[in-house]
Design a protein around this nucleic acid. Structure first.
Lengths: 246, 246
DNA sequence: CGTGGATTTGATACGGGTCAATGAGGGTGG
DNA sequence: CCACCCTCATTGACCCGTATCAAATCCACG
C-alpha cells in the first residue's frame, strides 16, 4: 500500500488530478495522523466531496448535520448572529480543520453557521462511518480532545482579549494568528494573505469596521505593518507586533 | 459490590463520615457516569484528596500539573491575567467539573490559574492512573469530548456576548448561568447564591466593578431582581431576564 | 459596637460606535 | 484601452456609554 498510487489509478476523490494523486484527502489531517495509509484510503473511500464558492453557506446555525466536515483546501468562517443581525466570527478554519463533531456525536444543534471565505473543498464523513472509525481507533478521540483543547485556548484568548485587553492588542493578536496560518516569509517581512475583509476582521475582533481601518492605519503609520492591496498585509516588524499582542 | 457500603467500612476517602458513606467521591462526576460501582471504587482508591480555603490557589498559570483535578464540593474560578494585573475569569467550576486534562494529556502548560471561591474539596487523579483509565474505558474520552463541547459553547457564548451584545444582556446571561448552578426555586422567585463578588462578576463579564453595581441596580429598579445581602440575588422575573439575556 | 473591606453613588474624561462623505480598486462594457 | 460603476475601505465629526477617579455608605466580622 504505497502512499503515492500509480498514476493509472484514480484517486479516492473520484477525480484524476495531480493534486489527488499526490495526497489523499485524509492526508495531513491532524486527527487522522496516527492512521496507516491503508486506513486513510479506506476512510477516504467513504467520504463525500464538494466544492464551495466564496460566500456559500456550508452549515446553518441550528441545523443538525449528520456528518463531520473536514476542510481540504480554502478557508471558512464559523460565526454566530444576534437578533439584530450583527455577526460574531468565532473561528477561521483552514486546511485540515474539521467541524460538526459535536452535533454528530452528541446530537446537539450547530451553534454557529459556517460560510466559505474563498473557494474551498470539503470532505464529509457521515455519522455511522465516523463513529465506527472512533470505535476502531480510540486515539482519534484523543486527537480530537487535543484539537478541541487548542480551539478552547483560542477562545480563551479571545475572551481575555475582549474582556481586558486594548483594541490594538486584539488586532495585533488576530494579525499574528492569520500570519501563522496564511503568512509567507519574505526578506522585508511576512506577507499575509487576508482571508477576511475589513468587515470580516471587525466581526472577528468584535469592533466596528471603521475602527479596524483606523487602527490598522495607526499601525501602518508606526511602520509595524503595510497594507498591500486590499487582501494582503505585510508585517514589517514582527517583534513589535508580538509585543503589542502580548 | 453495593453502592452504599456497610457503615462499619471506611469509605474510599479515608474518612468515616456520613457524606462519604452516602457517595463515593467519583460518584456523580459526569465523565465517569458510564463506570460501574466497583470501577468507581477502584478509581476513588487511587485519588488524592485535599480541601482548600477560600482564596487559595489550586493551580498556577503556566504550571505543568501531572494530575486531573475533580471538584467534589465548593466552587472555583479559572482565570487569566494581563501584564498589568487585570483578571479575566474564564470559567466558574463547581461540583463534578474537572480541570488539568489538557496539561496532562498533551503536556501543555496551564493557561489559566485556578483559585477557590469558597472552601472546597478536590480529588486528584494522577497522570498514570488517568491514562490507564482512559485506555481501559474509551468512552470516558467521549464524555470528555462532550464536556469540552459544553465548555466551548460557553466560551463561544462569551465571545459573542463580549463582541456584539449589550452589557445588560451579558449581565443577564451570567445571572442565568449562575442561577442554573447555584439557584434554588422559591415561591417568590429563584434565590441564587453568588459564588463571585461584584469584582468577580466584573472580571467574569469583562467590565468595571462599578458598572456591575450600576447595572444590577437598574435591574433591581425594574423589579427583575433583588439583592439579598451581598452574596445572594433573588431573580423575581425569570422570563424578563431570559428575554434580556437573549 | 467599631473597624476595614466591599459596594454603591456621583462627576468627569475618553475611547470607540455611528453616521456621512470621500477615496481607492477591480471588474465590466463600450 | 479607457471610462465607468459598484463595492469596499478610509477619513472625519460627533455623541453615547463605560472606565476611571473620588467619596460616601453599607455590611460582615471580630
Amino acid at each position: 500500500m504505497a502512499s503515492s498510487a500509480p498514476a493509472s489509478r484514480s484517486c479516492s476523490c473520484g477525480q484524476h488530478c495531480a493534486h489527488c494523486l499526490e495526497k489523499l484527502c485524509t492526508h495531513g489531517i491532524p486527527i487522522f495522523a496516527s492512521l496507516a495509509v491503508d486506513q486513510l484510503e479506506k476512510i477516504a473511500g467513504k467520504t463525500l466531496h464538494r466544492s464551495y464558492e466564496k460566500g456559500e453557506t456550508i452549515l446553518e446555525e441550528g441545523s443538525h448535520p449528520d456528518y463531520v466536515a473536514i476542510l481540504n483546501g480554502g478557508s471558512v468562517k464559523a460565526s454566530r448572529f444576534t437578533a439584530d443581525g450583527r455577526e460574531q466570527i468565532l473561528y477561521v478554519f483552514s486546511e485540515g480543520d474539521f467541524f460538526g463533531e459535536q452535533n454528530l456525536l452528541f446530537d446537539r444543534p450547530a451553534v454557529y453557521a459556517v460560510t466559505a471565505l474563498e473557494p474551498c473543498r470539503l470532505c464529509f464523513l457521515y455519522k455511522k462511518d465516523f463513529q465506527q472509525l472512533l470505535a476502531d481507533n480510540p486515539d482519534i478521540g484523543l486527537r480530537i480532545i487535543s484539537e478541541l483543547g487548542w480551539r478552547m485556548s483560542h477562545l480563551e484568548n479571545s475572551v481575555r482579549n475582549m474582556g481586558v485587553r486594548s483594541l490594538e492588542s486584539r488586532i495585533g493578536a488576530v494579525l499574528l494568528e492569520l500570519a501563522g496560518k496564511y503568512g509567507a516569509k519574505q526578506d522585508d517581512g511576512t506577507l499575509v494573505r487576508m482571508p477576511l475583509s475589513r468587515e470580516g476582521l471587525a466581526n472577528y475582533i468584535g469592533i466596528a469596521r471603521e475602527t479596524v481601518s483606523r487602527k490598522l492605519g495607526m499601525l501602518e503609520d508606526e511602520g509595524m505593518i503595510r497594507s498591500v492591496g486590499a487582501r494582503h498585509i505585510l508585517i514589517r516588524d514582527m517583534k513589535a507586533l508580538e509585543e503589542l499582542a502580548g
